[in-house]
């Protein structure tokens, strides 16, 4: 596996608001709704935990995101920053419990000067992207097989459901024993996390492709494979995208899980390392970085999704 520390495009973490909107565009069946709820098992990225007000990015044809919308969305972070600033300056809470914003920025600059900040961010991004790419591909393949074949559905779905029910952290000891402590177990864990949202949404969506369109394709001489690429896959593109966004959120979750427990680099490592050394400022920094990275990249993915859906319907 390559170990190139130059990361790719930013990735999204809590894309759940858009995820829900995407899901509500199509009739969600039980399976589908489960795909969403599943995420809540792993903590803070639950469907229900995020405001439905959102940014409207996932809504097809909801119009452009205006400057006003962006400013409105910045109100709460601005207020929070102010409260944080005031709390750290005016209350007797000691710095080692509540560092000031300036101290957190200072911690970032310090890490950057040591050459660690960029490394940590890039290694985390690399793990997320690799794990996501592998997991999403496997999820897509499994989802296609289960969604298209009744036999495969009956044969594989129960097993896959059971594997999906295993909490993320339960895999980690086993993966460490099997695969060592370097990149492979982490990426494998992230791939496991990313595979299931894609698998669930894709298989459910494929089962519900308009049978009329499929029959029309068959009537015009499309074989199984051609039918898949010409009719069925394009028909589930919107679902695939929402599955991919959920998978990205999962990838970040599993990344932090993997890095918290066994790593010497990355944002999750920064969290544990700082906790062990009492560096609250660095903990704040890591959390802020995760939030900013996640939200920014989520917005980018949302823009891509919108462009694609526009072309696609």
């Amino acid at each position: 596996m390559s170990f190139d520390e130059r990361g790719g495009a930013p990735v999204s973490r809590p894309s759940t608001t858009e995820g829900r909107e995407a899901a509500s565009r199509e009739p969600a069946d039980g399976e589908r709704a489960n795909a969403g709820r599943r995420v809540t098992l792993f903590g803070w990225a639950g469907f229900e935990g995020f405001s439905a007000a959102g940014t409207g990015l996932g809504r097809g044809g909801a119009g452009r995101v205006s400057v006003g919308t962006v400013l409105l969305g910045l109100v709460v972070p601005g207020v929070l920053l102010l409260v944080w600033l005031l709390a750290s300056e005016l209350t007797p809470i000691p710095d080692y419990l509540l560092p000031s914003p300036a101290q957190v920025v200072g911690a970032g600059v310090e890490l950057a000067n040591q050459g660690l900040l960029g490394t940590y961010i890039l290694i985390s991004l690399q793990r997320v992207l690799l794990g996501f790419a592998i997991g999403a591909s496997i999820g897509l393949a499994l989802g296609a097989v289960v969604g298209l074949s009744g036999v495969a559905d009956r044969m594989l779905a129960p097993t896959l459901g059971a594997i999906r029910a295993v909490p993320s952290l339960a895999w980690l000891p086993l993966l460490t024993v099997f695969l060592g402590i370097f990149e492979t177990p982490k990426i494998t864990l992230i791939a496991i996390g990313a595979a299931f949202p894609v698998y669930t949404t894709v298989s459910a969506a494929l089962r519900h492709v308009d049978p009329h369109l499929v029959e029309a394709g068959r009537a015009f001489g499309l074989g199984r494979l051609a039918l898949l690429t010409t009719v069925q896959l394009p028909a589930v593109v919107p679902s695939v995208i929402s599955g991919l966004r959920l998978a990205l959120a999962q990838a970040w979750l599993f990344l932090v899980a993997a890095e918290l427990l066994a790593s010497s680099m990355g944002l999750g490592f920064l969290l544990t390392d700082s906790a062990n050394n009492g560096r609250t400022d660095r903990i704040f920094l890591a959390i802020l970085l995760l939030a900013i990275l996640g939200k920014t990249s989520d917005a980018l993915v949302g823009l891509g999704e919108r462009a694609l859906l526009k072309r696609w319907s």
Binding site: L213, E215, A216, T230
Partner: peptide
């Protein structure tokens, strides 16, 4: 699905993501 036939259904059954021309293309022999 005999390829000597072609069917026009009661509903148009067009692929919504394809243009009119690309939908007609679907009917061309493989």
């Amino acid at each position: 699905a005999d390829q000597r036939c072609a069917v026009a259904f009661q509903e148009p059954r067009l692929l919504p993501w394809r243009t009119v021309a690309r939908n007609i293309e679907l009917g061309l022999p493989r």
